[in-house]
Design a protein around this nucleic acid. Structure first.
Lengths: 336, 336
DNA sequence: CTGTTAGCGCTTTCAT
DNA sequence: ATGAAAGCGCTAACAG
């Protein structure tokens, strides 16, 4: 293996000079720089980043915890994160946690082991141990930020959208079309984000004086299959809803299938609106109306936030709320 | 920061003993082990993996190069890779290359920098420089394997399916239904995998003595939009096909939409068959017939292969061909 | 079974 | 502007 020593020997300078030339070229005379660069080329030297990171006590790597990479929603967020990371010489260590606390912990531990400098979490669990009821950030935690999700009590720096507002708008759209029997297929109940979407739903229904029927409140796990199953339950009700608001597009697409299988025509017999605006939403039949989230930007912004924390330590009580947009396509119509 | 020295001091042993206790507990007396473990707990010591990796000259990290993580097909493969990696104390550094050579190179370089021990490539490009026309593995390359894709000339260790056979079966299914005017929406022409799928298509058509019309051969880039666009072109032809074979499910779903927009009924006016069997394929209208690939297993196997190379160096001319399966759903029918 | 010791390759004072 | 030297925290001979 070619090391900095070899380069120094060939160039006839000290290893310190080689190191400087590579890291801070402006601090070295032009003549020396040339000599060194020639030597580097000649022997094919590549900096051993492992040694550098070890010495510098940081890894230029950020762990990104994803609940499930086979959930399309996260892909664009990751691309956003990765783009900014790449521009800033940072690497992304992707952890697909499947919401398993042990795996979340394992990845977060990479920071204590100096394999990573910070943690970005796209799921709803904080991957560090903390006393239940804690309401402040623990100064012992490494640089840590969340995207999409947020914590109910601890003010973790976060990039997200206004889930209450977005949800309310989606339901309002259904109400505006004349629906009042509107069911909601939400995500897991223990998620603050889903809490907010539920609140938005409630708020819209209440404001419109539409009946709130608890059997119209179901929750799935964001998969196609769970959307299908929840819809089957909803269709079996004696008081059938005429419209469905789903907390993500996958469940909405599952819901569509369940309706078709039950012989309903869409959107005539059932209006359906989703959330996220994944690419597939524009390719369903009928095309799915949904709430658009700026996924790429969410990723970019949370990585920027992380970089800031890495440089300056702490980011205060940042909560960056990015704009969403209702995208109306073909899956909603006035009640038959 | 708590280091191995602190633990040694508290436990009253040498740092070597601490290191041993943590790495090879069986080589240490039980009494010492207890002392050390207690000291570790007491001061909250965590091994600095960066220092360890530096000393051991390996990182226990494998780079996975993905052409596009927002392409669903890759997600399950990555999950397979990650699962096996995790079990073996390996980390995955995910590189979303967008097929940009510069980015592929940048990620592959992590190996020369000792940030990673090997490279798994899910795309079709070899991320190392090599003379055009080379037909053998370069011994200077780090442990390197491909999944799904493979190289036309260089015998890179690979895990894949029989693309010629799978493609042939898909087209044969269309032929069996009575179609002869079968168009093919393939992926990018410079991909060996797509070459094989084209060959399978040709073989099936030839064997059935069906007409081979070059205007029925199109290629997209595996996205929904490209499937849509290719289909529009196909529908504008005076000699319209009655069936469509698409090289992935996304393009097939795009094709479905284009057909519907053109007023065709599915599968009556147009049979469509896809490739991959992503989750969405079972939730289209009509449900998409397709070729199933064992994505999780592909990922698991390629990581196993990588582990083997990492341990033993070199894997010979391995090409592991996993079984595929035709999944018939509702999107294919006899020609109207 | 345990301790001593010599680095791994690099960055970073501190002199010069 | 450059060099000498001191480690970063850990592992792995080697000796005892």
């Amino acid at each position: 293996m070619v090391t900095i020593k070899d380069v120094a020997r060939i160039a006839g300078v000290s290893i310190a000079t080689v190191s400087r030339t590579l890291a801070e070229p402006e601090k070295v005379s032009e003549k020396t720089r040339e000599k060194v660069m020639k030597a580097v080329e000649q022997c094919g030297y590549v900096t051993n980043t492992l040694a550098r990171n070890f010495r510098r006590r940081r890894s230029n790597t950020v762990v990104v915890l994803v609940p499930d990479i086979s959930n399309l929603f996260f892909a664009n967020i990751i691309q956003g994160i990765e783009g900014v990371a790449h521009q800033n010489q940072y690497r992304i260590l992707l952890g697909d946690t499947q919401q398993i606390p042990e795996r979340e912990r394992a990845y977060a531990d990479l920071v204590s082991q100096r394999q990573a400098d910070g943690v970005i979490c796209l799921g709803r669990n904080i991957p560090f141990t903390y006393r239940k009821g804690r309401k402040t950030l623990d100064p012992d935690w490494p640089p840590f930020a969340m995207a999409c999700e947020y914590h109910g009590e601890i003010p973790v720096p976060t990039v997200c959208i206004d889930n209450i507002g977005a949800s309310q708008e989606a339901v309002q759209h259904l109400l505006d079309l004349g629906h009042t029997r509107i069911a909601f297929i939400n995500g897991p109940a223990d998620s603050p984000l889903c809490d907010d979407r539920l609140q938005g739903y409630r708020r819209a229904m209440k404001r419109a004086k539409a009946p709130l029927n608890s059997s119209w409140l179901t929750s799935g796990d964001f998969t196609l299959a769970s959307g299908y199953a929840c819809t089957q339950d909803l269709l079996a009700l004696s008081q059938r809803p005429t419209a469905l608001f789903c907390a993500n597009d996958e469940m909405a697409i599952g819901a569509m299938q369940a309706c078709r299988d039950a012989g309903l025509s869409l959107p005539g017999d059932m209006s359906i609106i989703g959330f996220d605006d994944i690419a597939f939403a524009a390719y369903t039949h009928p095309r799915l109306s949904t709430v658009h989230q700026p996924r790429n930007r969410i990723g970019e912004q949370v990585m920027q936030l992380m970089l800031k924390m890495l440089k300056e330590g702490g980011a205060g009580e940042t909560r960056l709320v990015l704009p969403h947009a209702l995208v109306l396509r073909e899956s909603t119509a006035p009640p038959g």
